[in-house]
């Protein structure tokens, strides 16, 4: 049983003056939904394109399914499916024809039934013979997914799959991703800048910024680290700040707003924090550990 599906080591790519990806290393385990987070321009797309051999890395190594990507390109790509950004697909062809083309390109001679089943799965069977140019963005996205999945790949790479979708479309896409992982046993690498989405489906997470890795790990660990960000609302922030500053277990204190302080500390010491504040005569309005990935992400990337 092979555990690591993707192993990336010291991957770098430069476009002119821009260091798009900088010494990036990460690994994706079998069967997980691996979230790939970063702002627009952080280097997610460049990395994904390097995984798919669309872009040649300047440096670094990529292994997928335990094979070197450069040496076993076709073998790896046969077992990989991808949707990159918003594909318009062949607008002048029907969904069925599009799907058939991508099946053939993956080396698969699919029967009509197989193709129709695939379209059924993404809910496009009824419009199988309409030209794609008559499709909505959500339908195109689903067709793109069908094209990526038609040859039943073990690894699925989705670059910003929810981009341009309406809320319902986003929910559908999310369900599909979870189902593929949970029921289909697929490994998924999903990039997004929509962090709330990641929170809802990813099991592991890689956060990059300016081409560099900021954090990587299991979602739980990232969300529940030993040191947590804590937000404290008090009436007298100046006194509170002074008091907290005297301890050696509270770090990085800053005022978020006039009644709100934010700092880092071990979560287990929150009761101790309460006692300290009370004994210092301060009126506590609330103490809240910051959970949301978005907040975590913003804190990590400092944006």
């Amino acid at each position: 049983m092979m555990n690591t599906i993707i192993r990336v080591k010291n991957l770098s790519k430069r476009f002119g003056d821009l260091q798009a990806v900088d010494q990036l290393s990460f690994s994706v385990s079998a069967g997980e939904v691996y979230g790939f987070l970063g702002q627009n321009g952080a280097g997610k797309s460049t990395t994904i394109r390097m995984l798919l051999t669309l872009i040649e890395p300047d440096e670094g190594e990529i292994e997928i399914f335990g094979l070197n990507l450069r040496q076993h390109r076709k073998e790896i790509l046969k077992r990989t499916g991808a949707v990159i950004e918003r594909p318009d697909l062949y607008k002048y062809l029907s969904a069925f024809d599009n799907l058939r083309i991508f099946a053939r390109l993956s080396g698969m001679k699919a029967s009509r039934k197989q193709l129709m089943d695939q379209l059924e799965m993404v809910g496009l069977a009824e419009r199988a013979n309409s030209r794609v140019k008559t499709y909505s963005q959500g339908m195109k996205q689903r067709l793109g997914l069908a094209c990526a999945l038609v040859h039943d790949p073990g690894l699925i790479i989705l670059d910003e799959p929810t981009n341009g979708l309406d809320p319902q479309g986003i929910a559908e896409m999310r369900e599909m991703i979870i189902r593929l992982s949970r029921d289909g046993g697929k490994t998924l690498l999903v990039s997004s800048h929509l962090l709330s989405e990641m929170e809802m489906m990813a099991s592991s997470l890689l956060i990059i910024d300016n081409g560099r890795k900021v954090a990587e790990g299991k979602l739980d660990e990232l969300l529940n680290p030993k040191t947590a960000l804590v937000e404290l609302a008090v009436t007298d922030t100046r006194a509170a700040r002074q008091l907290l500053g005297q301890t050696d277990w509270i770090h990085n204190i800053h005022e978020k707003s006039i009644r709100l302080l934010r700092f880092e500390m071990e979560k287990s010491r929150i009761p101790e924090l309460t006692r300290l504040l009370v004994s210092g005569g301060l009126d506590i309005q609330s103490i809240r550990p910051v959970h949301s990935l978005e907040e975590y992400f913003l804190a990590q990337t400092g944006k």
């Binding site: 046969k78 991808a82 949707v83 950004e85 594909p87 318009d88 697909l89 991508f102 080396g107 094209c147």
Partner: peptide, 14 residues
Amino acid sequence: GLGTLRLVVGKPIG
């Protein structure tokens, strides 16, 4: 332009 080139080149073909 259609965005299919990246899908095609990412397929197991030379």
